[in-house]
Simulated scan of single mutants.
Amino acid sequence: MTDDAHSGRLPAETRIGRAALRVVDLDETTAFYRDVVGLSVLDRDEERAALGVDGSVLLVLRRDADRPARNRTDAGLFHTAFRVPTRAALGEALGRVRERWRLDGASDHLVSEALYLDDPEGNGVEIYRDRPRDAWPTDGDGSVRMATDPLDVESVAAAAGESGLVDRAPLDTDVGHVHLEVTSLSAFEAVYVEGLGFETGMRGPDVRFVAAGGYHHHLGANTWRGRTTPAAGRGLAWFEVVVPDAGALDAVRARLDAVAAERDVEFAVTERGDGIAVTDADGIEVRVRTA
């Protein structure tokens, strides 16, 4: 077991794995993530599509037309954030968005540059690239400092060069983070910080960013829209947190057991063949598995 596991923290190698969405129109939503985000369709049947890069699945879409639309009060997904490896790749993504979709926002977060849009069913999407970690600004306590400044969109577009429209995201693309809308930040911290073992980074009265290994954030949670009821409709089905080894997974189990015994927070833990699934008080399922 790693030293981080003994200390109550997730190991630095922890990352986000796949995310899964419940959708009505599987054809249209698959086309969006293929043609706009730039993922490849790796597997597809009438009820399910798996998309990713270089043979690795990043996103699973499942048709669920019988499930109701997400209610305006429901917790759930704020956005899935696809991380590209270079500024040129972000410029290529911007080209796809401009040619084939619509850009809803663009921000410079000091540690990263990000594009924001919604998929055809209203699920939030971020496409971003990180600046080099040694260039990230920090506060006096050593924590990573972020901001939401206007992005120089034309400079990002120029970074793509003269290659024209590029259909596919680079092979090093991954899911860098997932951002949730929750009903309670204290309940979020009980499960994801005290239980799973993420460390809290940026925090405000209505937002928390948590991460492993000093990253700016692997998970975000906010209460900006005043969600008051658990997730029940379409949208986020589950997402993965990937830990490096069985020792780290056992440490997560132990921490969750301690939270269940000591805290008045509702969540459920079930065993899976490759790890565990945790359903938090907002009905959001996070699957923790080994790499």
Score class of each variant (00 low, 15 high):
Asp152Pro: 12
Glu162Gly: 13
Glu154Met: 04
Leu171Cys: 07
Ala159Asn: 06
Ala157Glu: 03
Leu165Tyr: 06
Glu154Gln: 08
Asp149Cys: 13
Ala147Leu: 04
Val144Arg: 04
Glu162Ser: 15
Arg145Ser: 13
Gly164Leu: 04
Glu154Tyr: 00
Val166Asp: 06
Gly164Thr: 06
Pro150Asp: 00
Met146Asp: 05
Ala160Met: 02
Ala160Arg: 02
Pro170Glu: 07
Ala159Trp: 11
Asp149Asn: 14
Val166Asn: 07
Asp167Ile: 10
Val144Ala: 02
Ser143Thr: 14
Ala159Thr: 04
Ala158Gly: 07
Gly161Asp: 04
Ser143Lys: 14
Ala160Leu: 00
Glu154Val: 07
Thr148Asn: 11
Pro170Ser: 11
Ala157Ser: 03
Val153His: 06
Arg145Cys: 11
Thr148Tyr: 09
Pro170Phe: 08
Leu165Ile: 12
Leu171Glu: 13
Arg168Trp: 15
Ser143Cys: 10
Asp167Ser: 15
Ser163Val: 14
Ala157Ile: 01
Ala158Lys: 05
Glu162Gln: 14
Glu162Phe: 12
Ser163His: 12
Ala157Asp: 03
Pro170Asn: 10
Asp167Met: 12
Arg168Leu: 14
Val153Glu: 12
Ala157Gly: 01
Asp167Ala: 15
Ala157Cys: 02
Ala157Phe: 02
Ala159Met: 05
Arg145Phe: 14
Met146Ser: 08
Met146Arg: 07
Val156Lys: 01
Arg145Met: 11
Leu151Trp: 03
Asp167Val: 10
Glu154Ala: 06
Ala169His: 02
Gly142Trp: 02
Asp152Arg: 13
Leu171Trp: 08
Leu171Phe: 08
Ala157Thr: 02
Ala147Gln: 05
Gly164His: 03
Ala159Ile: 05
Gly142Cys: 03
Met146Gln: 09
Thr148Gly: 11
Ala160Phe: 02
Leu171Thr: 11
Pro170Cys: 10
Ser143Met: 11
Val153Arg: 08
Gly142Arg: 01
Ala147Lys: 05
Pro150Gln: 00
Gly161Val: 01
Ala158Ser: 08
Gly164Ile: 06
Val156Leu: 03
Ala159Lys: 04
Ala160Lys: 00
Asp149Met: 15
Arg145Asp: 09
Leu171Asn: 09
Ala160Asn: 01
Ala147His: 09
Pro170Lys: 12
Gly161Tyr: 04
Glu162Ala: 15
Pro170Gly: 09
Val144Asp: 03
Ser163Arg: 15
Val153Met: 07
Gly164Tyr: 04
